Amino acid sequence: MSLRSLFYTKYIFKRCLLYIWYKRYVKDNPVIQADIHQCLKVRGSKQIKQPLNKQFNHLMIHYPDYAYVFFWRINKLNMLWRSIFVDTRSCKIFRSTKIAGGMMCYHPFATVINAKSIGKNFQFRNGLTIGNKGNDNSKLPVIGDNVTVGANAVIIGDITIGNQVVIGAGSVVVKDVPPYSIVAGNPAKIIKRLDEN
């Protein structure tokens, strides 16, 4: 088999898988659709004007970070064909964590997410740790809508992060954060309020 025909066979195989997955997991799933929309919107992709199936195909083929989120959503992180869409990633999102639609990660390396719940349009970068305090899973964070977290941030304990919060890179958050805040530092402190003029 020539290199060209091998490439073509792999291309057709990928497209067939994407067609099946679109019909089975995406077409009637508003949470996955929200992930797709948010990922394209934040990246400023022109694909956002395409039909949903083309948006899904584009993200699965060109964005392994999105593909990771997709396989997590369908609870198939160990799927046989996953490796042709996702690079090896060191990321763990606990199945008990409830995450609304619109989740997006830029580089999920070295990330552990163990929260009670996370609202819609959650964005994060590499090195994020969200977890319990004292190895007690009753003491987990609750994170609101439209929260963006920078690289290497830590969010620990029975705390609440409000809506529209930005957590700066390297921050250590161990206390509640009110809505419409930008926090940074160790320990994290409010450095700006987004609802004040």
Rank of each mutant, 00 (worst) to 15 (best):
M79N: 11
A115E: 04
C16R: 13
K116Y: 11
L80D: 01
N29Y: 02
K49S: 14
R15N: 15
D35K: 08
Y106I: 11
E196I: 13
L77G: 01
V31Y: 10
N135L: 11
V86H: 01
P64H: 14
I159D: 02
N121F: 04
D65K: 12
D145E: 10
G101R: 06
I156C: 08
K54P: 00
K54T: 07
Y66R: 03
D65W: 11
R73I: 04
V147M: 06
P179E: 13
C105P: 01
F94G: 01
F7G: 00
Q55M: 07
Q47Y: 14
I84K: 06
A100V: 03
R43K: 15
V31L: 14
L17G: 00
K116G: 06
T9C: 06
N126Q: 15
K46G: 15
S117D: 10
N146A: 04
N114I: 12
I99Q: 02
K133H: 15
S90T: 12
N78T: 12
F109G: 10
I130W: 00
A67M: 08
Y22P: 03
G127I: 05
G131V: 02
N29V: 04
G168M: 09
R82E: 07
L18D: 05
P108N: 08
T111M: 08
T160A: 09
I156M: 12
A188S: 06
T88L: 12
Y11L: 11
A169E: 08
S45Y: 14
I155A: 03
P30G: 09
T88I: 11
K49T: 13
A100P: 02
L18N: 04
K49L: 14
G168F: 09
F70T: 05
K41S: 12
A34K: 11
R43G: 05
Y19D: 11
G131H: 05
D176W: 10
P30S: 10
F56I: 07
G134I: 06
K27M: 13
V26R: 01
K98A: 12
I191Y: 10
N126F: 05
